[in-house]
Design a protein around this nucleic acid. Sequence first.
DNA 1: TACCAGGAGAGCG
DNA 2: CGCTCTCATGGT
Length: 303
Amino acid sequence: MISDSKTKSFPVQDYDLDATLSSGQAFRWRRLERSWIGVIGGHWVRLESSGDAIFAETAEVLSDWKWLMDYLQLELDLNSVLQRFPDDEPMRVAMGACRGLRLLRQDPWECLAAFICSSTKQIVQIQQIISLLCERYGEPVNVPPGCAPAQAFPSAAFLAGLRESDLRACKMGFRAPYLLQSAQRVAAGELDLAGLGQMPVDLAREQLMQLPGVGRKIADCVLLFAYGFQSAFPVDVWVIKALRELYFRRRQVKLKRLQRFSAQYFGTHGGYAQQYLFHYMRTVARPKPPRRRIKAETKNVKN
DNA sequence: TACCAGGAGAGCG
DNA sequence: CGCTCTCATGGT
C-alpha cells in the first residue's frame, strides 16, 4: 500500500500540542527541540505541531494510525465542547488563556497506575517515578536509528509479580503497596478495566475506588483521561484553589462543598472545564515562587 | 531548616 | 460522617 509510511501529517484546528502534553494528564512525554517524544501503547512516536497540523513520526512503517488519532482525540470538535462551558468570567479567562488545550484518551491501566503514583507529588516527580517504572519493567519498543531506547508502560500482570521493594526503588514511597495490590487485582481479573467504559460513570467510579490508593480524585482522573467520561471532575489542590478564588472569593469552603458545587455547576461536561481551570492556575495564575536570597556564604559545609 | 507537593486510609469522637 | 494524623521522597 502506498499509504504505508513512518510519517503522517494530521490537519488540526485549535490544537495546542504543547499545552496538552504538558498539562499533567500524561507523564511520559519529553520535549526534544521542537518536538515531543513518547510511547503510546507499543508505539514510539515523535510529534511536532505546526499550528494547522500535527506531524507524527514512528519507528516502523504503518498503515493504521487509529491508535494515535484516538489518543490525541483528533476528531473531536473542540468548539462544541467549549460552548458547553458555563458562561461566566472565570471560564472566559481560562478559555482565553488555554486556547487549544485538549484532553487525551489514554490507556486505562497506564493512567490508573500513573495517578496512583501521583498523590502529593509534583508533576516532575511523577514523571520521574513513571520513567523509572518503564525503564526497569516495560517491554522495549522499536525506536528509530540513533534515538534513545524506549519502553512500553509495564503491564499490570508484570508489576503484579514484583516485590513492594522493587516499586519503592522507583521512588514512589508509600504508594508502592497501593500500586502493587492494584496491579494484582487487575491482573487477576478482579477488576475488569476494559469493561468500565461501558458502565454508567457512577458505577465505574465505585469500581475504581475499590482499589487501594484510589480515592475520589484519582478515580475521576482515570474516568476522564482514560475513558472519556465528560462528567468526571477531578478536584485537586489546584482546582480547589481555582474554585475558591474564582467562585467563592477565598471564603472558607469545605472540600465536600466544592465537590458538590463542581458537579452541579459544571454539569455533565465538566471534565474539560476542570482541565482548563487546572492548567490556567498552574500556568497563568501561578503565584510567583519567592525569589531566593543569594547568600555568598551559602555553601554546603559538610564537616 | 521547615515546608510542601494534582491524596488516601486509618483512627478517633 | 468530619476531623486529624501519617505515609515517602525530593525540591526549594
